[in-house]
Design a binder for these strands. Structure first.
Lengths: 153, 153
DNA sequence: CACGATTTAATCGCGTACAACATATTTTTG
DNA sequence: CAAAAATATGTTGTACGCGATTAAATCGTG
């Protein structure tokens, strides 16, 4: 099972590392979720809902498809999530007159106004990553590359 | 909102970076899930179930609590998951006679035998990270540090 | 020894994730 | 132009994640 005395690669060690990387990514995603939860609870958003709002705050109105591409989510996840955001009065949904297949998601006043509110509270925890900007940027790049490799199979 | 002309940090840029890091971690976790899914489907495991099996293959018998600590999961998640693994005949569960509060999870023959099977198939995709060992190790360390910072608040 | 506090799992409810399927609306093509 | 293929969204079923609650076993202190 182990490639004992080769001068090249040690498969078992590689497996161990990959396992640790799986765990690290998995657990870090959960850690983000938990770190943000107490803050998001105050405004009644879940973490995935917050990510959708981040996209909308940055880009404005968007079709469901595009939001899905940004967050790597499909309609099976987004449809009920967006329905809840709509019921909370944060977004509006309307068929695009140019293409009735598409549903354009837009911010309501309440939804747009929430940006400042959340942003203020969030900056408290913004430093919680404990990394300086260069480190964050580098980590982001590594993850994006890793993700691209995984997606490309 | 923006610290306009300070010689120090630019908060908006920092926010953008943090947002990108959220997304990167979130999307990379999903990417792992998806990359492993076609392989795990063949043996009837989900990705979280696979992570539990990895822990058991490495450590042998463990109480539920310890598995939860390894994977950062609580009993609300693990109980039904372990029940499914038990129904699939991969693990056994028994109260610890020394401490009836604890449930010791153990591998069945079938569960232990699955390691080779999965390991063989998995090594095909093992290289999919596209990183060499040093890079994987470094990424793992950064993520662990990030996670520790997030968890510490 | 007793009784309250702590520890460990299980259960329940809500909200994701995602495959598979259903529906409606373009777009493509014969 | 009509039938077929492609596109965009929604629905359903299964399986996480996790907070809150419950129940049982153990521990600590008087």
């Amino acid at each position: 099972m182990t490639d004992k005395v080769s001068g090249q690669i040690i498969p078992d060690e590689e497996k161990r590392l990959e396992r640790q990387l799986c765990f690290a990514v998995y657990a870090t995603a959960h850690a983000f979720n938990r770190a943000y939860k107490p803050i998001l609870d105050r405004v009644g958003l879940t973490y995935p809902q917050y990510l959708v709002m981040l996209v909308l705050w940055e880009k404005g109105c968007l079709p469901v498809k595009t939001i899905g591409e940004q967050l790597d989510l499909d309609s099976g996840t987004l449809s009920p999530l967006l329905k809840r955001l709509e019921q909370a009065g944060l977004i509006g949904r309307a068929r695009d007159p140019k293409d009735e297949r598409q549903v354009i998601v837009s911010l309501t006043e309440k939804g747009a106004g929430m940006q400042c509110q959340v942003s203020t509270i969030m900056s408290a925890i913004g430093e919680a990553t404990g990394c300086d900007m260069d480190e964050v940027a580098s980590l982001r790049d590594r993850l994006q590359r890793l993700r691209a490799n995984l997606t490309a199979e």
